[in-house]
Design a binder for these strands. Structure first.
Lengths: 333, 333
DNA sequence: CTGTTAGCGCGTTCAC
DNA sequence: GTGAACGCGCTAACAG
C-alpha cells in the first residue's frame, strides 16, 4: 500500500497538516527540527503525495497535456514537445501526451481531457476531422487550449497559424515559372480524400489556377516514406510523366528523389522535386531538397501562450499567432 | 465551473448515488424512467465525472502509462503505441504517454508515476542511464510495469528482451567472413560513451574478438540522420577508409549509404553497410538495406503482459519474454 | 428500486 | 509554531 500523509505524520510525531506544509513548500513557518523529522519520515517511507487527492483538493492538476497525431516523428512535433517540457519544468508543471491518430483516439482524448487530466492543452493534429472531433467535444469545457491549426471554428482558444496555402502556392508557382509544365501533387490521405481542398492541396490548386490552369495531377502517398516511394515510382514510370513533384512532406519528397534516381532520372533536370516542412534531412539528400516551411523550429512563443493563460489572473482574450513560412530553394528544383 | 454529480442529481431530482450508478454502468437496477432523467440531465449539463475524485475513491485510475524516449519516431515505438492503445480501448483503459529523453524528464516521470497517474506502465527507453534513473525511482512502489530492455537489475517487473548482442555479432561476423577487413561501428551517444560496452556495441566487439581481433573503429553519430551522414562522410573520406559500416540504427545506415554514394563509392562494392531495426524504409533504399531486427513488428504479446497483470486477482510472478531477432541480408552487404 | 452516509488522501481554514 | 476539523467529487456499503 502506498504511504499516505497520515503515516508520515505518525512516524514524525506531527499532524498531517504539518506534513502538508513541509512538503508543499508553503511559506508557513515550521520549526527546523520538526521540518527535518517530517522530511526524514517521508524519505523513509518513500512518500509521494497522491496527485488525485491533491488535484481534487486544489482544483488544479499542475499538469498540461500535449495532443499529437502520432509518434511518426515529424521534427516539428519533437521540437514542440521539447519546448513545452522545458517551460513546463520551469513553471512547475508536468506534461502528459495524448496520441490521437484516429477517430477512436479522438473520442478517448475528449473523455480524458473532460475528466480533468490537465489544466490546459496544446493541440497539434494533422487531419481536419480529428481536430474537429476533439475540439467539438471540448468546446463547452472552457479548458484553456492552444491549437496549432489553420482550420476554422476555433473560437475561444488561442490559435497558431501558418501561411501554408500561400507558401505552398509560391513553391508551385516557382516550379511553373521555371518552365515545368506537368506538376504533380503528392498529398496525405486526409487532404486528397477530403471533399473540399485545403492546406497544401489548396496551395497547389491556387498556383495552377493563377498560372493559366495547368493540368492537375493529384495523388496520395505522402503519409509514409515507402508509400511515397512507390507512388513516385508509379508517377515517374508513366509515359507522360510529370516534370515536377510537389510533395506534402519533406519525407515524401526525399522518397521521390530516391525514386527518380532509381529510375535513372536526373533531379532537377528531368524532374524537379519540392517538399514541405524544412526538416534537416533535406540538407543531406542529393540533391539538397527545396522545401517550404519555417526557417527556425522554435516554439517557445506557442508554448508561452498556454502558460500565460494558465497563470493569468484574468483569462486573457483569445490570441492568434501567425508563424512565418518561407520557400527555400535548394538543388532539387 | 465544471458540473458535478450533485448538480446532475438536483436537475434530475435524484440523489448523487443514483447518478453515479447510472453513469458508471453498474449492474444496480435503476428504473428506466429514472435512468433516462439522469442521462438527460447529464447531457444537458455536459457532465463528465471528475477522474481525480473517481480514482481517489476507487483506488484505480483505469489508465496505463506509456513511457518512451522520444518522439523521434522509431517505427517500433509507433507500433508499440498502436498495439497498446488498441488493447487499452478493448479493456476500458486510457493511455497517457510520458516522454523521457533526458535526466530531468526521467525525474519528472518518476514523480508523475509515483503520484499515481496510472495503474501500470509500459516502459521502453533507449539509454541505460535513463532507464536506471526511472526504474530506480520506481522500485519501491510496486507499480505494475513491463520493461522492454536488455538491462540488468530488472527484478519485480515483466521484462521483454531481444537477443540484440548475439544478432549484432552475427551481422558483423557476416561482414568479416565475406571478406571485410575494416569494419566500423557507428553507435549512439549513450553506447559509445558508456564505460562498459553493451548492446549493439558489445555485439560488434564480440564479433571482432571471435574473428581474431580485427581493428576496432568506433564512432558516434547514429543518433540522427544528419549526424550519421556527416560521420559516415568523415569515415569514408579518410585514406584508410573502412570497407564496412555497422550502424546502430537503420536510419543511420541509410544515411551512410547516401554518404557513400555521394562520395562516388559503390555499396556494397567499396563499402558494405548494415543497420539495426529492420524498418520498412530499408526496402526502398538503393541498394536495399541489410539489417538485423525483428521480422514482424507486433507487440500484442508485450502489451498483454501488462493488462494481464493489471487485471489479475493475484499478482502473477515476474515474466520474461525474449523476442526473436534475425539478420536480414539484402543488397547493401 | 432509491436515498443516506462514510470515507478515499490531501490542503486549508480556524483555534490553540 | 502546531493540531483538529472540514470538504474537494465521487463510489460503495447499508438502510429503507
Amino acid at each position: 500500500m502506498r504511504p499516505t500523509a497520515r503515516q508520515v505524520a505518525e512516524l514524525a510525531n506531527v499532524s498531517v497538516a504539518t506534513v502538508s506544509y513541509v512538503l508543499s513548500g508553503k511559506d508557513r513557518p515550521v520549526a527546523a527540527e520538526t521540518r527535518q523529522r517530517v522530511l526524514d519520515a517521508a524519505r523513509q517511507l518513500g512518500y509521494t503525495p497522491n496527485q488525485a487527492a491533491r488535484s481534487l483538493r486544489k482544483r488544479r492538476t499542475q499538469r498540461v497535456c500535449l495532443v499529437l497525431s502520432s509518434f511518426g516523428g515529424v521534427p516539428t512535433d519533437a521540437r514542440l514537445a521539447t519546448d513545452l517540457h522545458e517551460m513546463a519544468d520551469a513553471r512547475g508543471y508536468s506534461v502528459v501526451t495524448l496520441s490521437v491518430y484516429d477517430e477512436a483516439r479522438a473520442q478517448a482524448a475528449v473523455e480524458v481531457l473532460r475528466g480533468g487530466i490537465a489544466d490546459g492543452a496544446l493541440i497539434r493534429l494533422t487531419g481536419g476531422h480529428l481536430e474537429q472531433g476533439l475540439l467539438g467535444g471540448l468546446a463547452d469545457t472552457g479548458l484553456p487550449m492552444v491549437v496549432m491549426s489553420n482550420g476554422s471554428g476555433l473560437e475561444g482558444c488561442d490559435v497558431v497559424r501558418t501561411p501554408e496555402v500561400e507558401a505552398c502556392a509560391e513553391a508551385v508557382e516557382h516550379l511553373l515559372t521555371t518552365g515545368r509544365r506537368r506538376v504533380a501533387f503528392m498529398g496525405q490521405r486526409y487532404e486528397v480524400y477530403s471533399d473540399k481542398p485545403e492546406g497544401r492541396l489548396l496551395g497547389y490548386l491556387t498556383a495552377l489556377e493563377r498560372n493559366g490552369g495547368a493540368e492537375r495531377i493529384i495523388t496520395g502517398g505522402a503519409d509514409d516514406r515507402v508509400a511515397a516511394y512507390q507512388t513516385a515510382t508509379g508517377l515517374l514510370s508513366s509515359p507522360d510523366r510529370p516534370d515536377a513533384i510537389f510533395a506534402a512532406s519533406d519525407r515524401a519528397a526525399i522518397s521521390a528523389i530516391w525514386a527518380a534516381r532509381d529510375l535513372g532520372l536526373s533531379v532537377p533536370g528531368d524532374v524537379a522535386i519540392v517538399g514541405v516542412g524544412n526538416i534537416d534531412e533535406g540538407l543531406i539528400s542529393n540533391p539538397q531538397l527545396s522545401t517550404v516551411g519555417p526557417l527556425r523550429h522554435d516554439y517557445t512563443d506557442v508554448v508561452r501562450l498556454l502558460f500565460d493563460r494558465l497563470q493569468a489572473e484574468e483569462p486573457p482574450p483569445a490570441r492568434e499567432i501567425v508563424r512565418s513560412w518561407t520557400f527555400v530553394r535548394r538543388g532539387s528544383s
